[in-house]
Design a protein around this nucleic acid. Structure first.
Lengths: 331, 331
DNA sequence: CAAGACATTGCAACCGTTTACGACTAAAAA
DNA sequence: TTTTTAGTCGTAAACGGTTGCAATGTCTTG
């Protein structure tokens, strides 16, 4: 990269003012006379001056950039969250520095450290269980973090979620009400926080409360194919009711069941979390727990803007409502 | 943000060397004696020193950050492209500064300018037709740009794509071979480069070459619902063969057709571009044109790294292979 | 032993801004 | 008229690094 074409110096010289004054008009500081402002603006316009955000960042110690930590953008769940985040971020004039943490090329700590080295003003974290070391890193810096669609074990960090336990229990309740007794849980990632501390617990609680002892938990079912193949086991285990964390996985199970001549919802009912329109496309259509993903992202980002502006948060842990949307994969 | 805890000065003082030397060891410059390096590294370790990337960026005029211009991350097409880009970017130690250009809050020019102000070392552009003004902006700066999955009218910028025209003609050829004569084109965005300069042209060429005069182009069919509703018109127009740009739209059409008792592929055949696993989920399964989206993104990013390293490009316009994958929505 | 050659280090300018602080001016108050 | 006061503006020191250049030291080599 060659020397920047036009700097604040050039503008100052041309406008016959000091660079401090130029800086003031660029930043909308109103300690500047109207005529001076106009004169400077005219020069800025004529020279096509654009401030160097890196220099601004160094001098002001604010980069107007937030880091986004996401496991996998091709997972619609995170894509939707990201969209909510992005919209609010641009609304508040922040840019997003993206960090996928899905591939194991870099470990999460390095990724986070890298983001902090780039001096982001804040971070939105929507990965899975946050490691101890990651928590340490965030606590050492005073860079604000908010968790979107997840939480940390101690609730040390602000977060926005839905009530995962309640949602799951409600879904399980529907299956039970419909006469299903051999209920199974299909999760994408056994180590994910929300799964581990909410889904598993809710499921086990529910089974215990209703004296159901046929516990079936299938882990690491992430893809459509995983779901399709999983059906074999499900059938062998005589499962008749399923809660799945991903709708594509659920679609795989449904298609496998249909292909095998199993009747849904008569012989097998299934409920998943809706993140894509797969739930609408698969036949029979999926009964889903609808999370307001976009809103979760948007609210999280809004909270972050407050923290970055040194404002207080009304609530550190926001819980948004979900809805159980019944369709054809349950009675 | 408060004053940075530990700077290169602190390290220099503690290690009893100049900051120049510290800088050298941090940057892996080998003009430094082994013992000195180790001494400095020890101090860095002890003090938990982390370089301030913003200061580095200002001094070195390289930010190791690339801008990503994308219409909509929740569109799997772009999500897959982004993944390829992201993987290669992290491989070469670049960060990604994300810019969605889908919402009309900001216009594209502003978004691009903003990216350039942040001094990105390069840009990957995968939006639609690039405006004249956008091209101007890129040409004014010497920031390299490469287009992923799209191109500009004059091929002024490096790009990586598939041969959209050939793909479309091959798909249309299959429909024709299967005896379908009333062929329609369903596109998401009529103004998108690939549609405007490739799909429309290929379609019209094909129709002309085969003396088919029943031209049907349906624009702005982006979602599943759009597809579902579009079926009415398709039926009224007596269309019996469809090329759709999005698989979700195609899925909508298929489900509407099935719901209406229309037999696929007997009465209606349909081919779409696969970007999600919707193509596999919908029944009958979709025949698709498979684009190597991940690879397009990866290759584009690799090209960008070369440009940012002042290397020459072997080819400025890379064309990757596609495959027509036949399934149940065609005979 | 003198003199290049080379490896190692420090000096200091520079990157393009922001922002205390103080100086200056003109208007308002005394 | 003199003193405050408030509004404008410029000076210069940061911000935390990189890097060309010169200085120094160490080795060869003739």
């Amino acid at each position: 990269m060659q020397k920047q074409e036009v700097t604040i110096y050039d503008v100052a010289r041309e406008a016959k003012v000091s660079m401090a004054t130029v800086s003031r008009v660029v930043n909308g500081n109103n300690n500047v006379r109207k005529e001076t402002r106009e004169k400077v603006l005219a020069v800025i316009d004529r020279l096509h001056y654009q401030p160097n955000a890196v220099a601004q960042g160094l001098a002001s110690k604010r980069t107007t950039t937030v880091g986004l930590i996401v496991p996998d953008l091709t997972n619609m769940h995170f894509a939707e969250l990201s969209k909510g985040i992005d919209d609010i971020a641009t609304m508040y004039k922040y840019n997003i520095l993206l960090s996928s943490v899905g591939n194991t090329l870099l470990n999460e700590d390095q990724v986070i450290q890298n983001l902090l080295n780039k001096q982001v003003d804040g971070v939105i974290y929507m990965s899975n269980l946050m490691s101890e070391s990651a928590q340490e890193i965030f606590k050492r810096t005073n860079t604000p973090v908010v968790l979107a669609g997840t939480a940390d074990a101690n609730q040390d960090f602000p977060s926005v979620t839905i009530d995962y336990k309640a949602a799951e229990k409600e879904a399980l309740g529907l299956l039970l009400k419909n006469g299903k007794k051999n209920l199974a849980l299909v999760v994408d990632d056994g180590k994910a926080y929300v799964n581990k501390n909410n889904r598993f617990v809710a499921y086990k609680d529910f089974m215990e409360e209703h004296n159901l002892d046929n516990v079936h938990i299938y882990e690491d079912a992430k893809t459509y194919e995983d779901g399709y193949e999983l059906f074999e086991k499900i059938k062998a285990d005589k499962v008749d009711g399923i809660i799945a964390t991903r709708d594509v996985t659920a679609a795989g199970i449904i298609n496998a069941a249909v292909d095998a001549g199993v009747s849904i919802p008569d012989d097998l009912e299934i409920i998943s979390a809706a993140s894509t329109n797969v739930a609408k496309i698969v036949r029979p259509q999926l009964t889903t727990v609808q999370q307001p993903l976009y809103d979760i992202g948007a609210v999280a980002m809004r909270m972050l803007t407050k923290l970055m502006g040194d404002e207080e948060l009304d609530e550190a842990h926001v819980i948004l409502p979900y809805t159980l949307k019944q369709s054809r994969s349950t009675k």
